[in-house]
């Protein structure tokens, strides 16, 4: 401690005030006039997710054998089995609000009746709307697939050393 107090603290060089202000203003003006925004215009353009991206789980009623393995493995119990009128077997229903998108149900399904979509930006007005029974889930899946086919422009994000962020369209014509 004694040594430290004796040691001379090297005095920092004081910046030239006028030059510093002028530099700040020129940098600001240069950015204003030369650089382009890095914003991705999200609702019109959206990002193409990589392979293996885990989004909302989709369900195919026709493939399902009603084994209920998915509801047993689901960690947050987002999948529960429902009784469907006119069907002997129990079918899975889905609560997006509880889902943690772990993908265990997709892996355990013996007949590939469940799959991971690449959608994770669905919006609901009410909590009740996030709970699907088997029939709802099937329709939701169909809507989602149709929406994906006619999806707005997809872009890939590229990190550029000069520009910063750049967006490249993944749609090949």
């Amino acid at each position: 401690m004694e040594n430290r107090s004796e040691k001379e603290i090297p005095s920092r060089k004081r910046p030239n005030l006028v030059k510093a202000h002028l530099d700040a203003i020129t940098i600001g003006l240069k950015t204003l006039l030369t650089r382009k925004p890095m914003t991705m215009m999200y609702p019109e353009v959206s990002e193409e997710w990589p392979e293996g991206y885990r989004g909302v789980i989709i369900y195919f009623y026709d493939k399902c054998i009603g084994c209920s393995l998915c509801s047993q493995i689901c960690p947050p119990r987002a999948i529960k089995m429902y009784k469907v009128p006119g069907d002997k077997r129990l079918r899975p229903g889905y609560d997006i609000g509880r889902c943690i998108f772990c993908g265990l149900c997709v892996e355990i399904c013996p007949v590939d009746a469940l799959a991971e979509s690449k959608v994770s930006d669905k919006v609901f007005d009410k909590l009740e709307q996030m709970v699907f029974d088997p029939i709802d889930w099937t329709f939701f899946t169909k809507d989602l697939q149709k929406e994906q086919e006619t999806r707005r422009n997809k872009v890939r994000v590229i990190i550029d050393e000069e520009v910063g962020l750049r967006y490249e369209s993944t749609v090949t014509k």
Binding site: G28, T31, L32, R35, K36, P37, M38, T39, M41, G164
Partner: peptide, 10 residues
């Protein structure tokens, strides 16, 4: 708009 352009926003 100016603040946005300088901060590379829209």
């Amino acid at each position: 708009k100016i603040a946005a352009k300088v901060q590379l926003r829209v």
